[in-house]
Design a protein around this nucleic acid. Structure first.
Lengths: 157, 157
DNA sequence: GTAAAATGTTAGTGTAAGCTAACAAAAGGA
DNA sequence: TCCTTTTGTTAGCTTACACTAACATTTTAC
């Protein structure tokens, strides 16, 4: 089942709100997403129709098991992307969050998993033991550090 | 000026068609994008209004200087993303193309530039000279190769 | 327990971008 | 030339998703 960006945002938001409080209401979602209550109302009705959200008129909103499963996937995708943008490409926090938020809607589960593994590889290298020489241009030890240095050098672009 | 995904696709398509033939017509764009001619008609009218496309009723379609500048940026972003997905994450060609196509609409110029530099770093490491040991798990020489190996090992996931 | 405040819903509007049906113009061949 | 085919346009429909205005329900405070 392929969801729209907006539907994914709803699921994500409901999941995060559910973690912090017992009840999730239309107003909470509207505030979080900075959209109006009627928009949320329509949105969750639609999600209910496809079996991702439990809710009845004037009642509480919650995710179904399937909805929760999808929400977790969406949030994980966003986290991975944010991590990559921030930690590997060294994009500033604010922009990284913004872009990761948009990117998660177009990146597949498969790609997210591969990216996750890749990040783990690159970021964990700092702990490994080898004859690393930070000053040599010809040394390919620890690509993370050399790549980062070059990015910094060219950061004016 | 912030364009929609669809507008970016039009610009990209017109640019690529312009390279291959003297005239770009509504039908060519419709075929390429697999949408109908009336949709294209409406789309290019809109792009004309914002000064990115030259065209008059029953005439040829071409990009303005500004439109071309943007098209080049869009295509470059897609290429960079495709390269990253294919060469660094080793996602298969078909899926890489598909995802890069969607991702380019949400990735900023800045991020694309940083990604480009990063790819260059990682992919060029093979040429450098160092005491690389492919078999040692503890060696952090050439992250590209060790990362790739691990991705392969876990490719069933 | 009831009135005010907060919250939720319905109805209808707008925009982007696709679609079909129907018509108009241009191009090409006999 | 003129008739057919190709190409382009217009009008109007649909869907997704936001919006406002107006109304309904629930909660809260006294």
């Amino acid at each position: 089942m392929k969801l729209t960006s907006s539907q994914e945002e709803y699921l994500k938001t409901i999941y995060l709100l559910e973690m912090n409080s017992t009840k999730v209401r239309v107003t909470d979602i509207a505030n979080k997403l900075k959209i109006t209550k009627p928009s949320v109302n329509k949105g969750i009705k639609c999600l209910r129709e496809i079996g991702l959200v439990n809710y009845e008129t004037y009642g509480n909103i919650s995710l179904t098991d399937e909805g929760e499963r999808m929400a977790v996937g969406i949030i994980k995708r966003q986290d991975i992307l944010e991590m990559f943008l921030e930690e590997v490409l060294e994009i500033d926090k604010k922009q990284a969050v913004e872009e990761a938020k948009a990117m998660k809607h177009v990146v597949s589960e498969n790609t997210a998993i591969k990216l996750d593994k890749y990040i783990t590889e690159v970021l964990n290298l700092g702990d490994l033991d080898c004859n690393y020489d930070e000053n040599s241009e010809k040394c390919r030890n620890c690509v993370k550090i050399t790549a980062k240095n070059r990015l910094r050098k060219n950061s004016s672009i």
